[in-house]
Structures are given as C-alpha cells and as structure tokens.
C-alpha cells in the first residue's frame, strides 16, 4: 500500500485549497438547514404531542428522501474530479510512474473524498445539540442514523470514484455518477411499486430510503451494512482494475 498516505494527503490538500469543497459544503449545509428547519417548524405546529416520532427521526428517517436528494447532488460532485481531472491534465502520468500501486492511488483518493463527506456532515450534529435544549434526544438513534449516512456515503462515493475513472471529462464523470446513484435510488422506490415477490424484495434490499428509515429508528440491520460495504468494495476493486488497464491503452 505504498503511497496511500501521500495520495490521501495530496487529495485532501487539493480538495480544500480549491473552492470545490467549500462550495459544496455551503450548498450542503444550506439544504440540510432548510430541511431541518421545516421539520422542526412542522413538529412545533403539531397539536397532538403524543406522536411516536420526533424531529430527529423525521430528519434522518421518514423525511430522508430530501436528505438523499442532496446526497445525489453532493456525492457525484465530490468524486467527479478524482480521476477525470488527473487524466485530462496529464498528471496521472507522473502519479502512475511513481512507485505506487493502482490500489494505493484508488484508496488514497477514495479516503480523501470520504473524509470530506464526513466533515460535511459534522456541523449537522449541532441540530441535535439544539434539539437537546428543548427535549430529550435518543443518542442511540442519532448514532445509528449517522452510521447509516456513512454507509450510504461510502457506497455512493465509491461508485462515483469508479465513474470518474471511466472518463477524462469531469462533466461526464458527474453525469455518470448521478445516473448510477439516482438509478440506485429509484430502484429502491420500487419497493412501493412492485407486488410482493422477488422484485419487491430486491428493491427493498437496495433501498437507501428504507435503510435510513430503519437506522433512524435505531435498527442496524447487518444486511444493510453488508450491502453498502460490498457495493463500495466492488466499485473500488473495479476502479483499481480500470486504473491498471490504462497501461494497456
């Protein structure tokens, strides 16, 4: 894994000295803030306080479709430049002629976008802190919710990294990633479309919305973890092969 740390640090530096990460961070927090604000306003207007769920569960769970929509924008934008930009500018030649393995390059870049993703979510912890001033917060569900978000991010970002390795154009990488990630999301909606049977089970299994719905209630289903993990691992493995294949182009 020689070179992993160097690639990771360079990638972090490039992400945060250019406007991209900051712009995404601002857009992301604006969207999340708006969603959270609407949910809190909704709950404060409820006459009946005997509801079963609170704003935290709503934010991460029942209303997670908004949250996932922002991820469909943010994740592809975070990953689009990882390989596409290196190939367009030619820096990939300097990178791959250094004594590093393709896997170290892929994982270094992936770890950097994943770290950035986590950094983007970190400020949303303040929402929970704000809520805590007015009522009890179940930290267990908060933890499982963030765990669910991490899983989805890990899978989406790996998929996006793979898409970025398929094109020299950032725009095409962006579109491919949105297409793949949105496709996955839409497949999840199939859970409510198909009759009970194989297709419905399949759709339910890959549904990111259902994953968040469960995790926001504190249910961590191992199948969800395995799905996210294997999607990420498979994408990164293929990316490694793609990078290696450029030698034979």
């Amino acid at each position: 894994m020689s070179g992993f740390l160097a690639v990771y640090r360079r990638e972090m530096l490039s992400l945060w000295v250019t406007p991209l990460a900051w712009v995404l961070l601002v857009v992301f927090l604006l969207l999340q803030g708006t969603i959270f604000y609407s949910i809190v306003v909704h709950f404060t207007s409820l006459a009946d306080l005997a509801v079963e769920t609170g704003p935290v569960e709503a934010y991460f769970g029942q209303e997670s479709v908004f949250l996932l929509m922002t991820l469909l924008l943010i994740c592809p934008a975070l990953t689009m430049r990882t390989f596409a930009e290196e190939r367009r500018s030619g820096t990939i030649e300097a990178l791959l002629t250094a004594p590093v393995t393709p896997n170290a390059v892929v994982l270094g870049k992936y770890a950097a976008v994943l770290t950035t993703y986590v950094v983007m979510w970190a400020p949303t912890l303040l929402y929970v802190v704000v809520l805590r001033r007015t009522g009890a917060v179940d930290w267990h569900t908060v933890a499982s919710s963030y765990f669910g978000l991490f899983g989805i991010g890990a899978a989406y970002l790996a998929l996006g990294t793979l898409m970025s390795s398929l094109s020299k154009s950032q725009l095409i990488a962006l579109l491919l990633a949105i297409f793949a990630e949105f496709g996955l999301f839409v497949l999840g909606v199939g859970e409510y479309v198909f009759e009970p049977g194989l297709m419905r089970d399949l759709c339910a299994h890959v549904s990111m919305a259902s994953q968040m719905e469960e995790m926001s209630r504190g249910i961590v289903d191992l199948r969800r973890v395995v799905f996210d993990g294997s999607l990420a691992a498979a994408s990164l493995f293929v990316t490694g092969r793609v990078v290696d294949s450029w030698r034979w182009g």
Partner: peptide, 12 residues
C-alpha cells in the same frame, strides 16, 4: 521520470 508536457497540479 519527467513526462513530456510537465503535467503538475496547478493548485499546489
């Protein structure tokens, strides 16, 4: 190795 067009990261 020094590649042909001297590709570098402009932001660094």
């Amino acid at each position: 190795y020094m590649p042909e067009a001297a590709p570098l990261y402009p932001e660094l």
